[in-house]
Design a protein around this nucleic acid. Structure first.
Lengths: 128, 128
DNA sequence: TTTTTGTATTATGAGTTATAATACAAGCAA
DNA sequence: TTGCTTGTATTATAACTCATAATACAAAAA
């Protein structure tokens, strides 16, 4: 799994790493039970500090996407272990973000069908 | 238009204001040609500094959503004045965000239809 | 003239982000 | 045992962002 990180952008590096890994899991680049790169490996690969990677892993862990073990490293959790964990709060967050994206799309001139097509094809890109 | 601002959250206040106003325009709470509250008005209403509101307005202005005039205040622009302004870059940004939302939705157990329904109903909430 | 508009300036405080350089506990392999 | 690797913790530091306070300004309307 190759992570695209923008060093000069506004989004913190550890958040970008988190986002890229979530996408990677969604797309099936890494599956449940598989290991993520070690913090030192990824840090060296990206040319950043190990603690920055660790912070990303802690975030993923707090959200239930991975487990970490001092010995085994960081392991991806199964979807079934995740469902319902934050059901209510997550749904609110999702709806709020979709509301914002919808508003922007509308104002930029996209019509409903174009917007929905984009949503559908984004979801289609996820693991089968 | 009432703005819901979370003072303790991670998202900067001026970004929250920007987001709420974009939603407000999309939903038709404020229409093209109408005035936004003055910076002093909104600042006092929210109990924050005028410069924080000004920063939000500058952001909206730089994105083409509003125009500001020392005299007339901040005025909402029409959709037609906005279309195609950043077409390419905007589309990439939107697709990237939808990719992330799709991945999270998938991992939280939503199926494709549920996700698309949420997208559709979010867009439906926008101005007719 | 007075008021109101968005904006600019300057200084300040608090918090976040990322780094460097170490160090630790835990488990595995030799 | 000894050595290695794992994620994590610590401490100090630098740079940057966010938000504030207190003013001030140019421009146009009342």
């Amino acid at each position: 799994m190759v992570l695209k990180i923008d060093m000069s952008g506004a989004i913190p590096i550890y958040v970008q790493i988190r986002n890229e890994i979530v996408k990677g899991i969604g797309k099936g680049d890494v599956s449940a039970g598989e290991n993520l790169p070690t913090v030192r490996q990824l840090a060296s690969e990206l040319g950043i500090n190990t603690m920055t990677v660790s912070k990303a892993y802690q975030l993923l862990k707090s959200e239930g996407f991975i487990e970490t073990d001092r010995r085994k490293g960081a392991v991806v959790k199964g979807t079934h272990e995740l469902k319902g964990s934050l059901e209510g709060l997550y749904r609110e967050k999702l709806e709020g973000e979709l509301e914002l994206l919808s508003a922007e799309a509308k104002l930029r001139g996209l019509d409903k069908q174009e917007f929905i097509d984009l949503c559908a094809s984004a979801f289609a890109g996820m693991e089968v």
